[in-house]
């Protein structure tokens, strides 16, 4: 299903999605973030600081609550995520690709029903990038494209005064069907313009990872490279890069007690971060990744080698957030290029 939507009709489409909660990028506190739309959606954002991964993988997820009265067995009450249908507008192709990676992790071998309950109710209404959103975009180096519909339910393309709107999934069709008459049929001219816009978008210069197909093997060969330590020298070991990454999925599980007698509390999942020194520390104090160089290597290798070996794709989708938001210049493109350039 492919339609045309005049830009001034966008809010009418959103209004027609009465069965859906709608979120879209909003500028607040000087940053772009996904917020409830309140009926108005403007898609003039550069990419959001936080990716939309939180819609299906929130920073905090309660698995179950527990209660134990002394002398009795504990009582567990699983908490089901609230499953309202959610349409997220303005998702950029790197983040759509991110959703595919997250789906892969959470469905591999054991299905994570907390993730899946949320994910199956989230629809991504993507917006192609006619121009790179920032100076650190490199989606084309990691198998993506600025006009990709990967992970999207709908892909919109800005054609000036109108959007070209294409359904990608059945959910996407339903979203468009709900809009009914707000859409028009694309003319031959619209289709021509779409083609041209996409071609122009693909021709925009981006940052690049050199010889990307050889990267997994080269990283494997560089595990013991002294460069890791050197490239991580400025790293302060915070969690900005991973928490803002559309594909970082690592988490911690803890019991958060709300009462000690009777014992009451929740078992909670929270985001965690491989750059924190204690992430891999054993109870004994032994730490397999003792220094920041080893931790940087883990972040990079996970994205560019391990994920590739396990699932046949780069886990990094080239959004550039970890570069832009790093306060001390750790730059994943530079790191990959530097480490791999020394390998034959």
């Amino acid at each position: 299903m492919e339609k045309i939507l005049a830009k001034n009709k966008l809010d009418d489409w959103v209004a027609a999605l009465s069965d859906w909660q709608v979120s879209a990028p909003i500028m607040e506190d000087d940053i772009w973030s996904y917020k409830a739309s309140k009926g108005k959606v403007q898609l003039e954002h550069s990419n959001t600081v936080q990716p939309p991964k939180g819609f299906s993988f929130p920073q905090r997820e309660v698995f179950f609550s527990f209660e134990q009265i002394k002398g009795q067995p504990p009582r567990l009450t699983p908490i089901q995520p609230k499953a309202a249908r959610h349409a997220v507008f303005g998702v950029r192709p790197c983040d759509g690709a991110g959703a595919v990676r997250m789906d892969t992790v959470f469905n591999d071998q054991f299905q994570d029903n907390y993730y899946q309950a949320r994910r199956s109710n989230v629809a991504y209404v993507g917006l192609a990038c006619n121009k790179p959103q920032g100076i650190n975009c490199f989606c084309q180096s990691v198998g993506g494209s600025p006009v990709s519909s990967q992970g999207m339910d709908v892909l919109m393309t800005d054609l000036g005064d109108r959007y070209y709107v294409a359904a990608v999934t059945e959910t996407g069709k339903a979203l468009m069907t709900a809009g009914g008459k707000v859409f028009g049929e694309p003319s031959a001219d619209d289709k021509k313009k779409l083609k041209q816009t996409h071609a122009d978008a693909l021709a925009q210069p981006q940052r690049a990872i050199n010889n990307v197909d050889a990267v997994p093997a080269k990283l494997k060969a560089s595990f013991d490279s002294p460069l890791w330590e050197e490239l991580a020298r400025a790293c302060i070991g915070c969690g900005a890069c991973t928490f803002l990454c559309p594909t970082c999925h690592c988490f911690d599980i803890n019991d958060e007690n709300t009462s000690s007698s009777p014992l009451r509390g929740n078992r909670v999942r929270t985001w965690d971060n491989c750059q924190f020194p204690d992430f891999t520390m054993h109870t004994s104090g032994h730490n397999p990744r003792e220094n920041q160089g080893a931790r940087l290597r883990q972040r990079v290798n996970h994205k560019f080698q391990y994920f590739h070996e396990n699932f046949g794709m780069s886990q990094c989708t080239g959004c550039g957030r970890c570069i832009t938001e790093c306060s001390v210049g750790v730059d994943i493109v530079n790191v990959v290029n530097k480490v791999t350039e020394h390998v034959g």
Partner: peptide, 15 residues
């Protein structure tokens, strides 16, 4: 409002 959106990346502490 400010603390609501802290993601506890600890960049403030780390830097």
């Amino acid at each position: 409002h400010q603390f609501e959106r802290c993601i506890r990346c600890f960049a403030c502490r780390s830097v």
